[in-house]
């Protein structure tokens, strides 16, 4: 069974995306025992006994973890990509497992990386839109920046099984921040894995786009996950070569399930209309051609989005919106 779902447009109204033509599984809220927590370079890789959440997950979806000892002062869940979902995982007595890769960033993710086998995590998953499928036979390139490669290995396997050529580009600041090198090589073969680091400590010294450029040709479908600046650069290379880019963005999320409207970015819908679009339900993967890059600023504190003047419901006159 291929877990990759058919193409689904970004930015269509909620009523439509959540309707019958949306083939995403419903999420579940589960209390998951931690089965393993191992270091992997600069990251920790956790295996969770996730039951129904593991049986439903598709590549490109994410999990939202409650963090801190209850009653926690950290109210908001932390979003992490699902690295693997293995129903009947033989390594763990046939448990239905979800694997996640966590970079200790602030107090919440640090708390997660300190969990030990037997500890319990409250998880809502699977969330978000899975990676859409490419056209039959299209060549594909998967680009991961840092832990951004976490959801891509699974996708690589599905694409390979569906008969696509799959190149994998992994990039990071330094060797310890690369993730998934061996796993990717095992899926697509070492020759099709291309590595770049900013400091040259592994692979080519440079950016992922240096490795992507020679692979990007007409009809290529690029899947990318990583920081916003990288996603924009990947989109430019893919579009410049006549290809498509599917970008998994990382917006700050308060709920992860589509009820709060914090995680939005301006995206043009199928109807050509730009909306402030929720990345937790309509995303996290968006068509790079539809993202309103003109309204997105990328600074040291991360990416921020303005409301484009032609956005649906944009303030009409200065000072009118609030």
């Amino acid at each position: 069974m291929s877990a990759v779902t058919g193409p689904a447009p970004a930015g269509v109204p909620a009523a439509e995306t959540l309707g019958a033509r949306d083939r995403r599984p419903d999420p579940v809220q589960v209390r998951c025992a931690v089965l393993a927590n191992e270091p992997d370079g600069a990251y920790r890789r956790l295996v969770l006994d996730a039951g129904e959440a593991a049986r439903r997950a598709l590549p490109g979806q994410f999990a939202a973890l409650a963090v801190g000892e209850p009653p926690t002062a950290m109210l908001l869940r932390r979003a992490v990509s699902i690295h693997a979902a293995t129903p009947g995982d033989r390594r763990f007595d046939g448990a239905d497992t979800l694997e996640i890769v966590v970079a200790p960033h602030g107090p919440g993710t640090e708390w997660v990386t300190r969990r030990r086998a037997g500890d319990v995590l409250d998880v809502v998953a699977p969330l978000g839109r899975p990676f859409p499928a490419p056209e039959v036979g299209a060549p594909t390139v998967l680009v991961g920046g840092g832990y951004g490669s976490a959801p891509l290995v699974w996708l690589a396997r599905d694409l390979r099984d569906a008969g696509h050529r799959v190149d994998v580009v992994l990039g990071a600041a330094s060797r310890d921040k690369l993730f998934g090198l061996e796993e990717a090589a095992a899926v697509v073969g070492p020759d099709l894995v291309h590595v770049t680091t900013d400091d040259g400590s592994a692979g080519l010294r440079g950016r992922v786009t240096d490795a992507l450029a020679p692979l990007a040709r007409d009809g290529v479908v690029v899947y990318a996950c990583g920081p916003m600046a990288m996603l924009r650069a990947v989109h430019e290379v893919a579009a410049g070569a006549g290809g498509t880019s599917w970008l998994a963005v990382e917006e700050s999320m308060a709920c992860g399930i589509g009820v709060c409207m914090t995680c939005v970015l301006p995206v043009r819908g199928e109807d050509g209309v730009t909306r402030m679009t929720r990345s937790c339900v309509e995303g996290p993967t968006f068509d790079g051609d539809r993202v309103r890059w003109d309204a997105i600023s990328i600074g040291p504190g991360g990416a921020t989005s303005a409301v484009p003047a032609d956005c649906l419901g944009a303030p009409v006159a200065a000072g009118k919106g609030h």
């Binding site: 908001l76 917006e251 700050s252 308060a254 709060c260 409207m261 914090t262 939005v264 970015l265 909306r275 402030m276 991360g302 921020t304 989005s305 303005a306 409301v307 956005c311 649906l312 419901g313 944009a314 303030p315 919106g321």
Partner: peptide
């Protein structure tokens, strides 16, 4: 209504 720019939270 589009709501405000981000970050929103």
């Amino acid at each position: 209504r589009s709501g405000r720019p981000t970050p929103r939270m």
